[in-house]
Design a protein around this nucleic acid. Structure first.
Lengths: 206, 206, 206, 206
DNA sequence: GATGAATGAGCATTCATTCAT
DNA sequence: GATGAATGAATGCTCATTCAT
């Protein structure tokens, strides 16, 4: 790191430059993943698309995997931001409205960048997906927290089991809705699916 | 090329030999996939494990992908065999018993070869998974058929939507149950999950 | 390896082919080492010069180092063949004649492929030179054996020490003679050096 | 570029700073060479260890080779200082005592920094070792000078040949003594080797 | 002068596929 | 049909060196 120069601007300048490079690399990786798939995403190609040299790529990411992991993390973070916000808003909402909101948000989240979501879901060797564990755990914890606070509206049920089933269900409906038939994805259809899923989950919890 | 007339015994012998080679190759691929993961599964290695030369491998499979596809197809076929049988048995069974049976079978099916299932689910570039579409369609059709025959026990609902939601739900619970926590997989826990899932689905359909 | 075909010719043919490839690779490595130095010796270049694909190179040698090691071993083996032969011939020869012969042979041995010898001596990361240890030990053992058999002609002296000093001396004179000034290497000069070195060593042992 | 006039204190300060940087770089190179070997010694790493930026490194050394050369030169200079001093002290000393001194000094010199000596001897592409030529020549000249002054104690012999042989011998014994077996390096053993080598060389010259 | 981010040629190595035997 | 030696395009990655700040 050497002696830091006394002026912050220089430091910031360099930090910003680094940050820009890192962003460009992650963005380029995501773009290639979407446009050409995982197998085409070579490090040299990523660097080229990012407008950066391979050397720089390796200055910031120790391996190709790290780069893919960064893309995944960024995507997950975007999803989690939505989910967290939704769960906060929901906090004091009764079960049926809350579940409907949750289902809606799940589909929305999967739709942020559906192509990327598909590639991530379908083509990435899961080696990279350890982060996903943490992501799953957080969702579980948040949903469990909400359900706990609404226990009086619910029948007697093991909270972990209920959480597991609800999250699985909502997630899979959202996932399949987004990934499956494009024709199915009329807004009307989505609304139907939201209603139906909500009905099922709420019916189950009550 | 063969100087001998195509007497059927010889022909059969050769056909059997071919069949054996093909089987050995698919089996070897599956084994490597399970033991060492997709990335380690090189064609040379597969041929070696199968006790066959690479040349022979390419006599029977035009590419590595074809080989992986064959493994997937074999696995799916095993699953489908179970599902088809289950759905036949269920045909005249009332909704709740039938759904319980379906959930049970779904988990069983995912458990046939859980390690292979995991690798297939987690490591295989989905390029190979076009076959899965057909598989999904068949399941949808079969389940839809059953539901149609039980319409009187059900509330009024779009059959395709209901099928989509039920299949998604059952599949995801089974999938997550098998892939997730090992500790969770006590038989007792599995029973609880079966009951809960059944309750949710039946509650939804009625 | 698969079923071996019953006829030896086929087997030999393939063995010969392999052998030819291996030889070509080792030879190419040596040539590049001599002509362009260690740093220029990339595996792709070696394969190219050998008239073989990189893939084939890696079929026979697990790494670049293995290739260099093979060159060294081949060179050392050539030297050792000479040294072993010389020591056999010498077995019943009196000290002075024997030492003269040894010195002569040492210089000869270093002259087999002096350019390669130089490169090996000067440019090869010694990582590769573990084999050289064995080589040194063998020389030590052989020379010690001879000296032991001639003990009566020698003054009282620790045999290992004497061997160490004699081998070091002869080796270094031979090495420096071959590596140093080209002008020095007139045949006449070499004879002088042989005589002088012999005189020194014999004088020391007696 | 500098706005300040080149007052000598400042200049000195800067000169000293330069000198310190150069020293730090050479020292860092030597340290890495010893601890991690030539292959690990990247310029970035050297600069880092020296507490300096790569840019600064290239301000003082035009290439990695130059840096390694500086290490070699420093090491050789240390050795030569010892050798020169020894030869001065020896100037009026009779042959046997002088040779003993020379052998002793040779071993001492190789022992100044034996690890560095080993790395320099074993891992450095000799491209860098042109300097060594000059070093060798100086040793030759110094020893020849001494021998010339002692001609009356010696038999008739070509001085260059005798010098070449003596230097080779002493150098190789010292080198092998230091590099070879660690067990061999008891002080007692070293003394024996000194005596024996002296005996050989003196016996040869007389 | 000093910094360290950026460069990119170059390297060792892998592996799906071909084809002479 | 079977074999396995041979292929070579392609990949991930390193590191000496440059240059904008």
């Amino acid at each position: 790191m050497a002696r830091k120069p006394p002026t912050s601007p220089r430091k910031n300048a360099s930090q910003e430059r680094s940050r820009a490079t890192v962003d460009a690399l992650v963005e380029a990786t995501a773009r290639i993943l979407v446009k050409e798939g995982f197998e085409q995403a070579s490090t040299n190609r990523i660097a080229e698309i990012a407008g950066v040299s391979v050397g720089s790529l390796y200055q910031y990411f120790p391996s190709k995997e790290a780069l893919v992991a960064a893309v995944i993390e960024r995507h997950n973070e975007e999803i989690m931001a939505i989910v967290r916000t939704a769960l906060k808003k929901i906090a004091d909402t009764p079960l049926d409205k809350a579940v409907r909101q949750l289902v809606t948000v799940a589909i929305e989240a999967h739709r942020i960048n559906p192509k990327l979501h598909r590639v991530l879901a379908e083509q990435i060797p899961r080696k990279h997906l350890k982060d996903v564990e943490a992501f799953n755990r957080e969702v579980h914890t948040l949903v469990r927290g909400y359900l706990e606070s609404r226990r009086k509206e619910m029948r007697k049920v093991d909270l972990d089991v209920a959480t597991f089933i609800c999250v699985s269900t909502i997630e899979s409906v959202a996932h399949n809705t987004v990934l499956n038939q494009t024709e199915m994805l009329t807004e009307k259809m989505v609304k139907v699916l939201v209603e139906e899923t909500t009905r099922m989950v709420v019916g189950y919890l009550r």
